[in-house]
Computed example of a mutant assay.
Amino acid sequence: MTQLTEAPPGAPAEPPPAVARRRRGVSPAAVGLPVLGLVIAVAAWWLVTSGLHLVHPVALPPPQAVARSLADTTDVLLPALGITTWMTLSGFLLSAVVGVLIGMALAASGRVERMFAPLLVAVNAVPKIAFGPLLVVAVGFGQKPILTMVFLLCFFPIVLSTATGLTTTPADLAELGRSLNASWWQSFRKVRLPAALPQIFVGLKVAMPLAAIGAVIGEFYSDRPGLGYQILQYNGVGDTATAWAAIVLVALMSIVLYAALSAIERFALPWVRATTSAR
């Protein structure tokens, strides 16, 4: 029979197996499964376009044609990718700052929430593409219409997640703050905000792909030669393969930015993975 030995005083307790597995780092499945999903998606794309010829190549070129176009136009699409990435990140950061502040204001006062929540819902309900021509007239060409479009698409999920997280603090944590006679600021900084951060990151991760969509839509109505601009230009001359190559770059950019935001979440909130059950 195995003899049980008591851990020496001060030694950290051994984490549960699920937590230990999550602390080991990136598993091969974390990389292999997304790659497998990408391979399946490309294979289905090829089957629909080249294998079974279910879609005309003018509407949806086969993946090999898109890859050739991407290789032939890297001198145009890669600088455009840089412009779109910068616009996406700039608009997302602006949305994150303003959205968190608005969410904090809604959570701090029930009257403010009842006053402005219907307006926020109304603005979010309007199709953002309808604002495109109006933004050019209102703010002109350049970066402003792109940033405005990104902001309009991103801010609502950030506001909603921030307000929800700050108003759903666990009762035991709130009671702990009151029992320690914590001031409002101490309670907010030490209890409410840390408890709300997982919910806030949910809103940020929802908003990140929307930021890419907003940047592309904004470039439709701007003179900035980003990927959205290139999609319109190449589609206008009938070069749909290159237009789809630009769309693929938008998708890849969104994946990378989302993965980076998820990595930031894991680094900034290590206790979330350590205190939640494994799937």
Rank of each mutant, 00 (worst) to 15 (best):
Q3Y: 02
A11K: 02
A13M: 05
P17M: 00
A20H: 02
R21G: 13
S27N: 02
P28C: 03
P28A: 04
V31Y: 06
P34N: 04
L38Y: 08
I40K: 00
A43P: 13
A44P: 15
W45R: 01
W45S: 02
T49A: 12
T49G: 05
G51E: 05
G51P: 15
L54H: 01
P57F: 03
P63C: 09
P63S: 08
A65V: 06
V66M: 09
V66R: 05
S69N: 14
S69D: 15
A80P: 13
A80E: 04
S90W: 13
F92M: 11
L94S: 10
G99L: 02
A105M: 12
L106Q: 07
A108C: 10
S109K: 00
S109R: 00
V112W: 13
R114C: 10
F116C: 09
P118C: 04
L120R: 09
A122F: 14
A122S: 08
V123Q: 13
A125N: 10
P127H: 04
F131Q: 12
P133V: 09
L135V: 13
V136E: 14
V137M: 14
V137W: 14
V137F: 15
G140F: 09
K144C: 06
P145D: 15
T148L: 15
L152H: 14
L152G: 14
L153F: 12
F156T: 13
T162Q: 01
T162H: 01
G165S: 11
A171T: 13
E175L: 12
G177K: 05
G177C: 05
N181H: 08
S183A: 04
S187A: 09
R189K: 09
P198Q: 01
P198G: 02
F201Q: 00
K205F: 00
V206N: 07
M208L: 10
P209R: 01
V216S: 05
G218N: 10
S222Y: 06
L232G: 09
T240C: 05
A241R: 02
A243I: 01
W244A: 07
A246C: 11
L252E: 04
L257R: 00
A260K: 00
L261M: 09
I264A: 11
I264Q: 03
E265V: 00
E265H: 00
L269M: 03
A274G: 11
